[in-house]
Design a protein around this nucleic acid. Sequence first.
DNA 1: TCACTTTTATCATTTAGTGAAATAAGTTAA
DNA 2: TTAACTTATTTCACTAAATGATAAAAGTGA
Lengths: 404, 404
Amino acid sequence: MNKPRRGNRNLMRAMNRNLLLNIIRSQGPLSRTQLTELSGLSVGAVSQIVTDLIETQWVTEAGESDSTGGRRQVLLRLNPTAGYVVGLKLMENRAVCAVTDLEATVLSYLERSLPNRETPTAVAETLSQTVIHAVYEADIAREKVRGLGVGLAGVINSTAGIVHYSPFFHWQNVPLADILAQELSLPVYLENDVNTLTITEQLFGPGHGVANFAVLTIGRGIGLGVVINHQLYRGHKGGVGELGHITLLPDGPLCDCGKRGCLEALAADPAILRELRHALDNGTPSCLTSDTMLDGLTQAAEQGDELAQDLLKTSGHYLGLGLATMVNLFCPSLIIISGEGVTAGPHRLDPMLDALRAHAFNGLLEDVDILIKHADDQAWARGAAGLVVGKLFESPLLQSPQTP
Amino acid sequence: MNKPRRGNRNLMRAMNRNLLLNIIRSQGPLSRTQLTELSGLSVGAVSQIVTDLIETQWVTEAGESDSTGGRRQVLLRLNPTAGYVVGLKLMENRAVCAVTDLEATVLSYLERSLPNRETPTAVAETLSQTVIHAVYEADIAREKVRGLGVGLAGVINSTAGIVHYSPFFHWQNVPLADILAQELSLPVYLENDVNTLTITEQLFGPGHGVANFAVLTIGRGIGLGVVINHQLYRGHKGGVGELGHITLLPDGPLCDCGKRGCLEALAADPAILRELRHALDNGTPSCLTSDTMLDGLTQAAEQGDELAQDLLKTSGHYLGLGLATMVNLFCPSLIIISGEGVTAGPHRLDPMLDALRAHAFNGLLEDVDILIKHADDQAWARGAAGLVVGKLFESPLLQSPQTP
DNA sequence: TCACTTTTATCATTTAGTGAAATAAGTTAA
DNA sequence: TTAACTTATTTCACTAAATGATAAAAGTGA
């Protein structure tokens, strides 16, 4: 039982238009005839809607296919220059920005350091300039930019475009989307960073067409994005799946959130480095030093350093435990494991998968695909851009729940 | 982004018909004018659809309201005799059965013991007789029975109507829905028992209109039903939220599922009784005996028995820990705590709520309603009946995903 | 060149929602 | 009691979108 909704001709047209647009977008160049088959619409309707899509420049005719004994079919594809989108990913002290076309191909990419502890307005100004610069570098007409997607860690109200809580900026209830929208005169969509990655995996990645899947990101924090019934799940008031803060060890180390033994405090990158320093203080022999970063630790593990291996193994084990809990509750059919922390490699990921298998409920992991997929800075920026693409191709059933 | 769907006039009509029907069902008797306001449809459309609903007997005119200075409005309500549904809840060695009308008012209710370890066919025969008997007792025409809903613990493929795994019957891949449907010549819907309760809370209980909520059941096992975006979530292959089998203590007691330290093995009713026997064996002073059941234990706790209080407290604590994990991942805006285990009262529930508050992520519990709601056998049977009502009033957007 | 195929456009038909106007059925004040 | 006003519901002309048949376009092959 979904929330019932009123139907009228406009909605019907919008649904079918959206249907065709999404088929063309995801299934590559297609003829009108193929569209009728794939959509189930009549030839008349397809003809009419396609004419409209071509007039409004969303779609272009792109060559013809070979004849199969009759008239050649004219291929239709998404107009690559129909529009462009900008994605911005905010991190602790810098931002990365990407301009992409509607197929998420990156046209320009740049990084910018963010002044520390600035006011939201000051940060917003820096961000605006970054966006303008990136659009300039992409060499596209500004009018064709359809929107800006912003991803950052924290609790975000994506509907209102408000940052409820950000661990980096220590903001509270900042209407960042509105501020940026005013400065740039663009639609701005704000979203938790893991969610942007999740949406982009749904649109362009292995998550396409998968009804239920989850994206786990490992890095400074532990993030979780969840798609349920083909729809990103945001939870009550934008409080997304806080997998990083489930309690695994009630007496464990203190977490940033104030509780003890959270997954994040046991298994995220800072936890590994904290345990490294503990071990060195206790005189554990190792080639590592107290200012080794995760990359160095990974290298050391590959070269046989036992401490490094142990640290990664422990982190992986807890990650697997948390992942098993997630699987027991959500039962996704696909799990994408991503983030910078993936680079730590098998020394971390193998124990994770072992623990996952050991603690997931009987049979729940059967037919579940698990993908390891590294996400660098550019992938995060591209993810934020994908957020806008997602809005552009979103089903009208989800948009503007008008009267009822 | 939902899976895009084709729209046509039939769908439009079905959507609006369903919209009106659901408004009438849930908002009580209403006039046509009120319907136009609540639905957003035009007066003409409402008039036409209501005429159709009356012709097809779904709705009846039920008196008039007072005049507010003009023509009196004719009130419309769900036709109470439009149809009836039957619900069946299967337990370890018995089944309970309820016949209700479309508003989930119970018309007849009966219990029946189930012969142990029988074949599915034998069990199905007993169930069919029970259903026929219950319908007879409800004194309704058999043709007006719209379907049978069956709820039982285990992993159920509700789409195919197959019991994948049942902890009680030790069946595997039994097409119970088909067997019963043949015997009774009725549509039969099979579903995990917690899910039936969840659907009924959504239709007739506090879950009505709530986009995201969860139902936790405490009893012999720990169950979880989840509604996300107004839709029951079933997970991949019907593997529902196995909250009972998340690992809380990796070295904890052995669970039925073969793993150690599952929530169910720590906090469900059998776990309490197991710990009771442990404690008695160790000579802990108490007025309890080794064959005390949960009711006796609860009474003892109320009368000040320390062991009983401790046992309930420990169970509650683990329940709260598991609940906090669930909240961190799902972030529902409403939690309904139900099942027979609720009768254990504050000695169990207060520690549960304490642990929940202590381990839920900052602020995630704000504005979250928590309801304690006892569910006895009849409530479970009514829940199974509600499953059918849910099907009858389900949005056409969810039904028959035809071609696309 | 003709017969056949395949693709795409066009057009009459159907039908559900829309909104205005008509009808029905009240109330209220003179 | 009647006229004026209110409110509820039905009716009806209108519109627009999907449908399905038919026509037109554009190819192949003997």
